[in-house]
Design a protein around this nucleic acid. Sequence first.
DNA 1: ATAGAGCTTCGAGTTAACTCTAGGTCAAGG
DNA 2: CCTTGACCTAGAGTTAACTCGAAGCTCTAT
Lengths: 131, 131
Amino acid sequence: MNYSINEVANKFDLSVHTLRFYDKEGLMPFIGRDKSGNRVFTDTDLNWVAMVCCLKDTGMSIKEIKQYADWCMEGMQTIDERKEMLAAHRKQVLKQIENLKKNIELIDSKIAVYDNPELAQKLYGSLDKQQ
Amino acid sequence: MNYSINEVANKFDLSVHTLRFYDKEGLMPFIGRDKSGNRVFTDTDLNWVAMVCCLKDTGMSIKEIKQYADWCMEGMQTIDERKEMLAAHRKQVLKQIENLKKNIELIDSKIAVYDNPELAQKLYGSLDKQQ
DNA sequence: ATAGAGCTTCGAGTTAACTCTAGGTCAAGG
DNA sequence: CCTTGACCTAGAGTTAACTCGAAGCTCTAT
C-alpha cells in the first residue's frame, strides 16, 4: 500500500510542512518519489515515520535522529552504534519518567494543600501567597 | 536563611541568567531585594522556585506558570483556579508518562531486533535498512 | 583609594523546531 | 483548453526559552 504526504501527515498528526522539514533535515532518506516527483510512502516507510515520531516524542533532537537515520543508511556495520544509541536513549527516557513521577508528587502535595488549607500550617508554618 | 541568586542557581542547577529571565517574565513576583538592589531569596522563596522548576520540567509553558504566579499574587480568591490548573496539569503529566511508556516499548522492540536479527524476518518479512 | 567580586538592567543574539509564503509542476475533470 | 487541487522547492519568518554582552553599581579587602 502507498500513501501521499497528506495521508501520512493525517495518520501521524503531523503537518505536511513538518514531514517535508524532517525529510529536508535528512530524517527520511528512504522515501521514494513517483514520476512527477511527489513523495510516495510505503508501509515500511510508515514504520520508519513511527520510529522517528517515537524518538522525537521521547525528546531526541532532530540532529540525533538524523545520526540514527544515517547509520541505518550505512547498513549492517552500524548495528552496534544504533543499538548503543537506543539503549542510552532508553535509559534517558526512564529517567524522564522517574522525574515526571517525582514532580507529580509535588503537584499532588500542592493540590492537597488547596483541598485542605489547614495543611499549610503544618507544612509551611503559615499559608501565605506563595503556597 | 537567605540566599543570593548565585546560590539559588547552584541549588537548582539553573543559570543566574535563567533565574533573572524567570523573574523578568513575572514568574517570581515575591523575591525581595537588599538595600543595594540585589535579589534576596528566603527559604520560602526556594519552595517557590522548586514549584516553578517542577511546572517547567513537566512541560508547562512560562506563560502558564506566570498565570499561576499571578493567581498566587491575587490571594485566596483564586484558590479554585489554581487547583483546577494543577489538576489539569497533573492529568497532562500522567498522559506524558503513559506516552513515554508506550514509546519505550517501540524502542525495546527495536533493540530486540538488533540483538536478534532473525526476529526481523518474523516482524517485517525482511531486514532492510529501515529496520 | 582602588581592584575585584558579585550583583544590577537593558537589550540584542542564539537555537531548535517548526511554520509559512511564493512561485512552480503536473494530472484529472468539465 | 483551462481550471482545480495536490504536490513540489527554496527560503523567509516565527516562537519559546534561553543566553549573552555591555555598562554600571556596591561592598570588601589590600
